[in-house]
């Protein structure tokens, strides 16, 4: 069996999975400074143990409405990429799953192009669908590839 380990998390109501190896840590973002003129999905910058982290709002990136009210339970997934620190803001963190890579299915063709651009595929679990997230794409500005995906 070709097993992979995934960290699962929720953005909105959807459960996503990301490869454990891609995730540096999970932290509670605090004291985030918003950056005027930045792209809408950039939640701001914050100080995480002396490093400057650029926070990406998962909901905004996926075109979801913002959270009703801040319940103080916001979490972020820390990712190191090209020597830079990023934090992907999520709603809830879940368990770590071991899944067979062979059971990964392709994105449904009618998937929203923005979602399709950040999804590597879908795992069918017993009671829900797990979308495997391409963290790199998720942290990149939305653009070119989505248009291509939509076409």
């Amino acid at each position: 069996m070709n097993e992979r380990e995934y960290v699962t998390f929720k953005i909105g109501t959807q459960v996503f999975g990301a490869s454990v190896s891609e995730i540096h840590d999970v932290f509670r973002p605090s004291n985030t400074t918003t950056v005027p003129l930045s792209a809408p999905e950039i939640a701001g910058v914050l100080n995480l143990r002396g490093r400057i982290v650029t926070a990406i709002d998962g909901r905004a990136r996926l075109g979801l409405p913002p959270k009703d009210k801040d319940d103080g339970r916001t979490l972020a997934i820390g990712v190191e990429r090209d020597g830079e620190s990023f934090g992907l803001i999520i709603d809830e963190i879940g368990e770590v799953l071991r899944l067979d890579a062979d059971s990964l299915e392709q994105n449904p063709v009618n998937l929203d192009p923005v979602w399709a651009s950040v999804s590597r595929g879908v795992h069918r679990l017993d009671n829900r669908l797990l979308v495997i997230m391409d963290i790199d794409r998720m942290l990149s500005p939305p653009g070119g590839d989505e248009v291509a995906a939509a076409a």
């Binding site: 400074t33 950056v35 100080n47 830079e84």
Partner: peptide
């Protein structure tokens, strides 16, 4: 002076970011 994140590099108004004494990050 800390370098600007690539995601913010396109905003010409900023040259970098820094952490203040109170721990806050400012541009």
């Amino acid at each position: 002076v800390k370098p600007l994140s690539k995601r913010l590099g396109s905003v010409a108004q900023y040259s970098g970011a820094t952490i203040l004494g109170d721990g806050a990050v400012i541009m």
